[in-house]
Amino acid sequence: MAVKAESIAKRYFRKTGGANYFYAVKPLTLEIEAGEVAVLTGRSGSGKTTLLNILSGLLAPTEGKVWIDSTDLYSLDDKSLSRLRGERIGVVPQGRSAIDTLTVLENILLPAKLYGRPLPVEAASRWMERLDIANLRDARPAELSGGELRRMAIVRALAQSPDFLFADEPTGDLDDENTNLVLSAFRDYAHEQKKAVFVVTHENDALQYADHIYKMDGGQIM
């Protein structure tokens, strides 16, 4: 079980120098295997988030293919791709990603609810306990701090037991203690449940939890 990027690139139309476009991600090939934590670091604007979005099925590349096992992700129509994302891929995006009209627990169970799958209440409770937000299950997102919201998004991704977990700066809003809680949770998830975890981060702390470390600069993996 793996996600494989084959000569993928993302080009945007923007006048840059003499060209009418620029590459956010330059052609690259990458494979993330089940049972490992891959950490991608790099400066702001180096293309990390774009790469994560392409790998997680959120943003189609302008070149190349992304394979999830034997499925060419971007050959799927929107309905099939969305279903696959909902069932096999978990994403923790940057910034706020809560629906304000739902409680914390409802937000966490939302992916399963969308497709009528059995609600992973037990897994949700376990991960909430582990990331220390169990007392917030009935709270509304507006009542949560940035760090709590971040952990809610992480639990939402983990509770679905996705085969591939993508996290974009997951510890950006967290203190050291919570950073370690989250990163160790990712490591255990990958190692114990044999899932693939891909983390984009600035934090050096994350490197010690990584099985593979990638560094990105100017849209290229160094």
């Binding site: 969305s82 994302r85 069932e87 990603s97 969308l114 497709y115 939402r156």
Partner: peptide, 15 residues
Amino acid sequence: REFDVLRLVGASRGM
């Protein structure tokens, strides 16, 4: 932002 989150967790355009 709410719709982005729904897309993120697997909602299709049609949904």
